[in-house]
Write a protein that binds this DNA or RNA. Structure first.
Lengths: 146, 146
DNA sequence: CATTTAAATAGTAATAGTTACTAATGTTGA
DNA sequence: TCAACATTAGTAACTATTACTATTTAAATG
């Protein structure tokens, strides 16, 4: 079992959540398919219920939601689908993404565009967060597209 | 009737779409409630059907979608709600937004964070777009929150 | 101005994604 | 081992959105 699934598991433990078969299976699936890649939630739902025919939607959605609250996964709307990606650094080091609009693959960017000059334009506002993302085709999908 | 609704109307005409009562009513509603502000689609649906009891969902959603294709409105997911804002400059001048996470109000930013240094990190990628948004409370909502 | 034609609409129903509920189960900590 | 309580399965409800089709209507044409 990969170490990052163990990491995620210990995050669950630290937050007094129980380690169930269902949660472990979901973490493994996410680690295998959604590392450095956004995967839409319905395909997770489909896969889990195919693999574990009597797993309920409830369980899947609730767990994804809890994983997100704990920073184990990152949520996002890709196109018009709710998507999720396994979070590699649980430290939450601040960074932004290039996201392939074809396959969902993610490349981390080093820079953060939030500067003082920008926030200075926002007198009186209480800035709480920001989003910076670049979209396009990753090298592989760009090749396929030719 | 405000001139920007007329502008939007002429966009429709230029694209050979018919000027119907329903479309005009929707444009007026959007102009009045969704200028410099994101409004969620279901509340548009609710309002239109309250005002025009026999307007079908189909019509509302289809028109929003067409308005978006023509650049008359800008679509976006706010939190987890599909939202829409009336587009002021039909020129599509490139810009980014501060968005109030409480009321949806929008403030335009002057700067664009996309630099050559950033795209240089993306060798082999085909960049097609980007998103930069700052979230927080607008001055009014920040006050109310105290 | 009357007529034609294709686009747009209303009304209804279906679909998809997500959430709610409750009894049964399973994990964890003592 | 056992008790407590979180988690789950199963079912059903709910909400947002889309599909379908007969009817209406805008606007182009003569």
């Amino acid at each position: 079992m990969p170490s990052t699934v163990e990491e995620a598991t210990s995050v669950l433990k630290n937050n007094h959540l129980k380690i169930t078969k269902q949660r472990t299976a979901m973490l493994e699936f996410l680690y295998n398919t959604a590392t450095r890649k956004f995967v839409d939630v319905t395909s997770i739902d489909n896969f889990m219920r195919k693999t574990f025919p009597n797993m309920s939607h409830n369980t899947i959605y609730r767990n994804i939601s809890e994983f997100a609250d704990l920073g184990i996964v990152e949520r996002q709307v890709q196109g018009d689908r709710a998507s999720v990606k396994f979070q590699c650094d649980f430290e939450h080091e601040h960074h932004h993404h290039f996201i392939c609009s074809n396959c969902g693959k993610v490349i981390e960017l080093k820079d953060c565009p939030l500067s003082k000059e920008i926030t200075d334009q926002l007198k009186g506002c209480e800035v709480s967060g920001h989003l910076f993302q670049i979209y396009g085709l990753c090298p592989e999908c760009a090749q396929l597209n030719k």
